[in-house]
Amino acid sequence: MSAVLKRNNVKVLGQGQQPMIFAHGYGCDQNMWRFITPAFEDRYKIILFDHVGHGQSDAAAFDQAKYASLDGYADDVLAICRELNLKDVIFVGHSVSAMIGILAANKEPERFDRLVLIGPSPRYINDGDYVGGFKQEDIEGLLDFLDSNHLGWSSTMAPVIMGNPDRPELGEELTNSFCRTDPDIAKHFARVTFLSDNRADLPSVKTRALILQCSQDAIAPEAVGRYMHQSLPGSEFVQLTATGHCPNLSAPEETIAAMEAFLSDPTPARAVA
């Protein structure tokens, strides 16, 4: 396996030709897509991966400088596409990965056919008239809590509390097996994610995009989804009845249906400016 595929724990499934790459958001790994991908395996080539520092990726490949902004993660997406020689790509990104997909599509627009953005947010912190859903001090509170190592998030960060990062199996026995994240990388990713501001990257997107907006999403409220829709040229907006931030888990059928409708529609919603 090539270095890139190993680094990002890339999995390729499905019987179709057109590639569909799924990118997980902050807090989990490619397991996020377990209820979605079966619906597309017969017609698409499914590509799953973990961001560096998450799931089964190679945490040793983590580089503070490279991943100091979402660009580093977008470059990884493009590296995977190049490695697998993917064209006409349908990019499905959840949460922060929706923005990673937008950055990738801006870097290599010709490679992408469509973007499916689930619970996207270009900026989490309120800014003047812009409503991001969080006050600056909320995010600082989150980051402080992460820094104090207590959100202990005993499940995912047990090794920190156990004091045995060299023996993660100790954490394994005691806590939860999914979505394991290296605690230092998780803190770093939280900082990059929640302090990011990619509003300026939206108008230049040339790829057709679908925005899936949940109800009562504390991470990406409806106002943010509307802002995305207005700022992304030619984007489509679907309001889901599903609540929370993870419709791919809590309401897979509704999510799949919205995606199917978008993917089967051959014409752009409106001309790209």
Partner: peptide, 28 residues
């Protein structure tokens, strides 16, 4: 608390959905 709220949406709900339980999550 705000940290736990974000954790609930980003980690806890997905974990519950995938494995049906979570144990000994620490938050405020």
């Amino acid at each position: 608390s705000i940290g736990a709220k974000i954790f609930y949406d980003t980690h806890l709900t997905p974990l519950l959905r995938m494995q049906g339980f979570v144990n000994e999550i620490a938050f405020d």
